[in-house]
Design a protein around this nucleic acid. Sequence first.
DNA 1: AACTGTGCCAACCGCACTGGT
DNA 2: TACCAGTGCGGTTGGCACAGT
Length: 313
Amino acid sequence: MPPVTKSMSIPIEEDSELRRGPWTLEEDTLLTHYVARYGEGRWNMLAKCAGLKRTGKSCRLRWLNYLKPDIKRGNLTPQEQLLILELHSKWGNRWSKIAQHLPGRTDNEIKNYWRTRVQKQARQLNIESNSKRFLEAVRCFWMPRLLQKVEQTSSSSSSLKEISYQSSVPSQLSDCTYPSLSTFSPLPNKITDNSNNSFENSSSVTSQSLYPTDFMNISEQTQISQHLTSPIVYADPCVYNNNQILNESYNIDSSGYGMEGFSLASISAVGSYERSPSECQMVEGNWISNEMTDTLWNMDDIWQFGELGEMSN
DNA sequence: AACTGTGCCAACCGCACTGGT
DNA sequence: TACCAGTGCGGTTGGCACAGT
């Protein structure tokens, strides 16, 4: 049974007797009981019959976002984050549609993730989150790192393999080979002993206290900055991790992240993938500043607590 | 210890859509 | 066809938890 609410305050009573605010355990129990007995739908009727002083909409929302048995808790996995980035590039803010491809995740959760994590990065870069520049940043920095995490976790976490993704996008990556990411040295992290923590119970720990923030040294950042600020950016392969060079192969277009061929099936098969360096060119030229690369290299949100624990083992 | 700023997320709101009458 | 209730969806907000000072 999920926790009822973080709030201990008494929900506000409306003049019309309709309750608002956080749900109580009694309300949750009542709603769960009635949905189990009568099924979903007819929410207004259900609210009345159950004696819930809530609107039908409120009942539906509570059920779909919190009480439904198959709701998955905890941080989004790298696979899920990748899929969100991919699908958002295709469909935009179609949260419910995106959520359909992430079993157990709600549109609300995905929407919150996008607003709190992804858009935060855009703000820090002073660019629009839906601009081409930001898309390029995501494509060349964020997603490769996610890919690295995916490979690490796919080889060490069986729970990740249980997820059945249904990306409708035909994979183009099968034509490519990736340099094995497993040869990359693990990123140092500040966590020395959290091996007792699992994915499932990691939600109680904030990312801020656990994500590494300074895993790159000055020379590495300088190297990347020099690379990124050179003319005709990305005529060379993108610098990817520490002193490694990654040959990415996302095709750039104006409609998204160039991830049309990026399905979870291909993600799970990361390990042999290469691309032509010319395919990773910045359309708009020299736009990534040192400040931007620093910010992007601090996209620590992608590091999951549970995986860090594994990495420290 | 107290205060402040920030991140996060559950819940609400308004609008659009759909199906029944 | 028009109206209405129910439902779905995306945007927004309130407030708790936590980190930093």
